[in-house]
Amino acid sequence: MAVSGLLFIGFVLGHMYGNLKAFAGEESFNEYAHHLRVLGEPMLPYSGFLWIMRVGLILALIAHVASAVILARRAAKARPVKYAVKKNNGSSISSRTMRWGGVTLLVFIVWHLLNFTIVKINPSNGDTGGDNPYHLVVDTFDTWWMTVIYLLAMVALGLHLHHGTFSSLQTLGLTGSAVSRARARAAGWVVAIVVAGGFSLVPLFVLVGIIEK
């Protein structure tokens, strides 16, 4: 769980950085998308790197979701009778919403892939396919409700990362002192804000018209 989670963190950080290329304009964004596909050539075939990433991410996702399901089922079995009254004193909202947050993210990821990778649905005109990623992005986020969905997903992602970052470090046994624990908590905040914030910039700027075709 921790390993796959950390892998995701690495991925979303890279991914977010890539998205910010949208600020540099159509050309450099599309070049970046193209670059991803030719990375490693000629050692790797066209899209080879991307496929390694994809396979890695899919395996990690399977591992991640499977562990999540196992943990959730163990938890349910460990407390078959619920409390009539239960207060939370020591936990963050993020830590208590990992499971629902995770499901939200999963649903989002599916939609996200349909939107940008697999079917390439352009919500503004219903077209599919197309090969100008930059246009697809701008068209998508010009649609207000797409931006809202996306932003909500980023809230979920931020929460998930806030606890996930700390939690994975703790799970790996890297938070053995009060100081290291405080650092891991801080890292949770930083990762959550940077990633969720960073991802949110592009859609917001598209919506208000700063980034445009």
């Binding site: 196992i70 943990l71 163990r74 938890a75 079995k77 460990a78 407390r79 939370n88 004193n89 020591g90 936990s91 963050s92 830590s95 208590r96 990992m98 606890h163 700390f166 939690s167 703790q170 799970t171």
Partner: peptide, 13 residues
Amino acid sequence: GFGGCTNIGECAA
């Protein structure tokens, strides 16, 4: 049959 830890922190509190 105890559950797995997800580092929530209610225990320490």
